[in-house]
């Protein structure tokens, strides 16, 4: 069974367009339908390794949908249908034969609204590692994850208190620490700062830059300045005339913000800044 699976995955007839070593995830011809609604159409781009990739665009353009396709979260929506190829470590993880649970153990996620478990701070971080069969010292793991999420100093004396007792910004960093405990190599962030105050937002942004030294980060943001501040690469989505989400252009963030190739990108960027 598993040998057969590997074979079908590896002999996929789609050409691998960008096989360079520094590409972590390559997305090819991605289409997402919700029932009869064609929400995302024909999206193709690469996510570079250990860098921050920002997905931007007007609301409803499908950027979150694309993000949630990467770790198969759309599997949880019965009406959703995701087509196309998402190549990660040489495997098309959008293949139905691939277990989404294993995908998510390697590709972590941070959500728009902080959603810590109604458990202690310690258990919030430890749980993911526990269910994934972590064998090492749990205390050390919890501490190192909380340190890497830049929240250790604030919570080290109250690890047994509920994660819900923290402020919104702290909760979000706890959720990042929780994602790190699985030792993922990719972290998806869905507007991680949109529910937070400006100071907490800055902290999260600093954290993203710091984490990008070790992890591949894909972040959806509606905040243009945030994309400019934190990302190395930007992918711009918009709606076509059939109200389907399409990719307009993708490139290095610096290029795109100073010299957009597409008029729509320029309109969007300048409109938001103006």
């Amino acid at each position: 069974m598993s040998a057969l699976t590997v074979k079908t995955v590896l002999t996929s007839d789609r050409p691998v367009l960008d096989a360079s070593a520094d590409v972590q995830i390559s997305i090819r011809d991605l289409d997402v339908h919700y029932g009869a609604n064609h929400a995302v159409r024909d999206v193709t781009f690469d996510v570079p390794r250990q860098a921050v990739t920002a997905l931007i665009g007007p609301s409803g353009c499908g950027k979150s949908t694309v993000l949630r396709s990467i770790n198969r979260m759309n599997d949880l929506i019965p009406s959703a249908r995701v087509e196309g190829e998402i190549r990660y470590h040489g495997v098309n993880i959008n293949d139905p034969a691939i277990d989404p649970v294993i995908v998510r153990r390697n590709i972590g996620m941070v959500f728009q609204k902080p959603n810590p478990f109604p458990k202690s701070i310690y258990d919030n971080v430890a749980w993911g590692a526990k269910i994934n069969g972590h064998k090492g010292n749990m205390d050390e793991l919890v501490e190192s994850c909380l340190r890497r999420a830049a929240i250790w100093e604030e919570v080290k004396d109250k690890l047994k208190e509920s994660g819900l007792s923290l402020s919104g910004g702290q909760q979000q960093r706890l959720c990042i620490a929780r994602a790190l405990a699985n030792d993922p190599d990719v972290i998806l962030m869905d507007e991680p700062a949109s529910a937070l105050d400006p100071i907490s937002t800055l902290k999260i942004e600093d954290l993203m830059r710091e984490l990008a030294r070790n992890y591949t980060i894909v972040v959806v943001t509606h905040n243009m300045q945030q994309a400019a501040r934190v990302s190395d690469r930007t992918v711009f989505f918009s709606l076509n005339d059939q109200r389907q989400g399409v990719l307009i252009e993708a490139g290095a963030t610096a290029d795109m913000f100073t010299n957009p190739r597409d008029q729509r990108t320029e309109d969007y960027i300048t409109g938001r800044f103006g």
């Binding site: 972590g108 959500f111 478990f117 749980w127 993911g128 994934n132």
Partner: peptide, 25 residues
Amino acid sequence: PPSLREAAYGLGATKWQTTWHHVLP
């Protein structure tokens, strides 16, 4: 709340792990 289920699934939990550890409690 659905956000609790998403949090668990996002960590690579199976359906039963999500249900047993988070939804049921």
